[in-house]
């Protein structure tokens, strides 16, 4: 008699992912979907798809979805949450979307402490448009628009979104996690769960930043990309919790 030891979460549809081999979007999608199922909120959740590699993730998440203009997901989420406060609302955004074109929207969603959850994917590059420099690209990192490596004198140092948003009084829960190995995948899932619990409790703005990889545009094999993320990305973007609801601090 065979026993089921692992089942695909109901939070995902049966649509095959469109992501490149070794990309961590798939892992993060699954974690978010599992949390929605485990917290029993899937049927009242409304997600927002960004512009970027995960632009079609409305096909993958098994809940109501809205596709937003580039960077505007936090504003779209605000519109939904304000008229449907009993629904669970999350946005899923990459670093071009959130950390570049959508900085105003994310800062002000945090500032208003919108009771939404943001899943932020930081892989230091524009994946969908072919590997251009992102605000999060590391100094010295080569991309198609920083072909000699990012020069901080020319375009500054990479932006640290979790630290930046932690300085916004309205931000309730901010944590940076990684999915480069199974132990961190488990930690990441806990952070996602916490973020959604903050929303369920009506405590305000929550965001989980994921250190992610882009093997294709980084020009690396998947395992090398994971190693590179651990050695270089995490060195610059420290993992950990930056903001948590005050009552939990006591």
């Amino acid at each position: 008699m065979s026993k089921v030891v692992f089942e695909k979460t109901k939070g995902l549809t049966n649509k095959e992912f469109s992501y490149c081999p070794g990309c961590t979007h798939g892992i993060i999608h699954r974690l978010v979907a599992e949390v929605l199922e485990e917290l029993d909120i899937l049927d009242r959740t409304i997600g927002i798809s960004p512009v970027g590699c995960s632009v079609t993730n409305y096909e993958f998440f098994n809940c109501d979805m809205q596709q937003a203009a580039h960077g505007r997901a936090p504003a779209v989420a605000t519109g939904i949450k304000r008229v449907r406060p009993d629904n669970i609302v999350f946005s899923y955004q990459g670093d071009g979307d959130l950390a570049s074109i959508g900085t105003a929207e994310i800062v002000h969603a945090a500032h208003r402490s919108e009771n939404i959850t943001v899943i932020f994917i930081n892989n230091g590059i524009y994946g969908m448009t072919g590997g251009q420099m992102a605000p999060t690209t590391l100094v010295g990192q080569k991309t198609t628009t920083s072909p000699y490596g990012r020069d901080e004198k020319h375009c500054g140092k990479p932006i640290k979104i979790s630290e930046l948003l932690s300085a916004v009084p309205g931000a309730t829960f901010i944590e940076r996690v990684s999915v480069h190995n199974p132990a961190h995948v488990r930690k990441a899932k806990k952070a996602i769960k916490k973020a959604f619990e903050v929303q369920i409790a009506g405590k305000g703005f929550s965001l989980v930043e994921f250190i992610s990889t882009c093997p294709v545009n980084w020009g690396m094999k998947p395992q090398d990309a994971l190693n590179w993320a651990e050695e270089n990305m995490i060195a610059y973007y420290p993992l950990g919790n930056f903001r948590t609801p005050e009552e939990d601090d006591k």
Binding site: Q66, A68, A69, R72, A75, V76, A77, G79, K81, E105
Partner: peptide, 14 residues
């Protein structure tokens, strides 16, 4: 820009 995207979200939510 944010205002009209809030309108998008709210309208999309009926």
């Amino acid at each position: 820009i944010a205002a009209i995207n809030m309108v998008y979200g709210a309208s999309g939510a009926g």
